[in-house]
C-alpha cells in the first residue's frame, strides 16, 4: 500500500494541472470562438506557397 503515497498525490497533481490549463485557456479567451478555432487549425494560409 506504500505505493499510494506517491500515486495519489501524483494523480491529484495531474488533475490539477488539467484544471489550471483549462482555467488559463478560459482566461485567455480561447473558448470565445469554438467554431472559428476549429477551422483555424486546418487553414493553410500561414504556409509559404512552394515555389
Amino acid at each position: 500500500m506504500n505505493v499510494l503515497v506517491y500515486l495519489v498525490p501524483l494523480a491529484l497533481l495531474l488533475g490539477l494541472t488539467g484544471l489550471v490549463a483549462f482555467l488559463w485557456s478560459l482566461h485567455t479567451r480561447q473558448f470565445d470562438d469554438l467554431e472559428g478555432a476549429g477551422w483555424r487549425a486546418i487553414s493553410d494560409d500561414d504556409i509559404e506557397p512552394r515555389t
Binding site: 470565445d32 470562438d33 469554438l34 467554431e35 472559428g36 477551422w39 483555424r40 487553414s43 494560409d45
Partner: peptide
C-alpha cells in the same frame, strides 16, 4: 458563413496599411 469568409476578411484587412490585427469570431 464559413471559415473561408473568416480567412478572406482577416487577410483582406491585413493587407491594409496601418492595421495591427483583425480577428473574426466565427461563432458570433
Amino acid at each position: 458563413k464559413c471559415a473561408g469568409c473568416m480567412a478572406a476578411i482577416e487577410k483582406g484587412l491585413g493587407q491594409e496599411p496601418g492595421i495591427v490585427s483583425a480577428r473574426v469570431n466565427l461563432a458570433s
